[in-house]
Amino acid sequence: MTPKRKQRMIFVIVLVVGFGAATALALFAFQSNLLYFYSPSQIEAGEVATDQMFRLGGLVVEGSVARHADGVTTSFDLTDTADSITVSYTGLLPDLFREGQGIVAQGKINTDGVFIAQEVLAKHDENYMPPELAEALQAAGGSHPESIPKTQ
C-alpha cells in the first residue's frame, strides 16, 4: 500500500471512529427523550413529570376493560406486570385492542391518578401465527396465545 493510500485509510478510520463516538455520546445524552413511551413502573417510581402529557405503554389487564354508559368511553388497566395504571379513553379504539394486548396511550394523569388518554395505539408484538395454530394453542393451554412465548 502506498503512503498516500495509507494516509487516506487513516483519514477514513478517524472519520468513522470520530463520528461514531460523537453519535454515541449524543444518543446517550438524549436517552430518555428517545423512549417512545414509559411503563407504569417508571411512573410509580417518579421518573416522569406527570403534570404534562406523556405516552404510557403496557399490556391491557385481563378483565379490566369496562365500557361506560355514554358508549364511547372505555376504561382499562395497563400493566408491565409489576405496576398498573387505570386508563380512560373516549373515542374509537384500534382493531388490535383487546385484553392482553400491548397498548401505547398518549395523555395526562388527572388528580385521581387516572390516565386520561387522548390517543390510543395498539403495539403489535413480534409473534406471527396462522389462526388455526392460535386456536389450537388456546384450546391446549386455555390461555391467550400472546402469553405463550414460543411458537413451535
Binding site: Q31, Y36, F37, Y38, V104, L121, K123, D125, E126, Y128
Partner: peptide
C-alpha cells in the same frame, strides 16, 4: 429504546 415498532422476529 421503547418503540411502537415491534422487535425482531
Amino acid at each position: 429504546w421503547n418503540t411502537l415498532h415491534q422487535g425482531p422476529t
